[in-house]
Amino acid sequence: MGQDRQQLLLAKTCLLASQILMENGSELARIDDTVKYISNTYSAGNDEIESYVTSTLIIITANDPSDEEMQPLVLVEKTNVKSINLTKIDEINRLSRAFVARELTLKELYAELRALRKMPMTSLTKANIGSFFLSSTLTYLATQSIVASILAGLFGTLGMYIVTKIYDALHRPFIGELIVAAVITILVRLIMLVTPLPEFNNIIIGALFPLLPGVQLTTSINDIFDGNLISGPQRLLSALILTFTMVLGSLLVFTIWR
């Protein structure tokens, strides 16, 4: 019985680590490796822990090959990518390293993971400042215009703020990006009533750059080349739909304005 409880704790720890990694945009290879490190460290290969992860589902199976009468343990959890948070991914990496180095027991690791999952660990200020730098620098590289780059930076910051607030309120993907693209296009159009902006397209694209799905594209390609032909195309489709909604938002404004 004691061994069953330990096996359950091991499986739950692996499940929780997988869940946190998946929710924060990690690639599947990292999730598989983390589960392997945790299970190999704890059971030294005596328990077979396998994970099957997609963008919406995590399945962890635990089996003791030396015990023929024992039923394999299967844990299933629904999941989805909530946001990209590389700090949480780094924190999981740190905790799993500490566990492998025997600085944490399995129980302590599980408690740390539970606390980590509850912690938001997101800073809207950091994201806003980052959006300003990203939008302004890339727009300047494209246009060589200080005015365009400052406008793109300001709109990028506003866009990141609005998207975060809309997602916090609605918990639905894509709607925030649609609204932000429309809002930014309206603001650019209003400024164009007062002063000409020849690089208005570059300003809009620059302002939307922080929201463009670069991370999702990269992780989807990594997943596809790792052989994950369910979650890789899922993420790729999600990235395409995200871009589609942003273009739709801008296009709606252009069409109505005309």
Partner: peptide
């Protein structure tokens, strides 16, 4: 240009909540 790329990389890292040490 190199400085702008430096700023853009850090900016993007901040938007995806990369740890400060990175």
């Amino acid at each position: 240009k190199i400085t702008l790329i430096f700023g853009a990389s850090i900016g993007f890292a901040m938007t995806v909540q990369a740890p400060n040490r990175s």
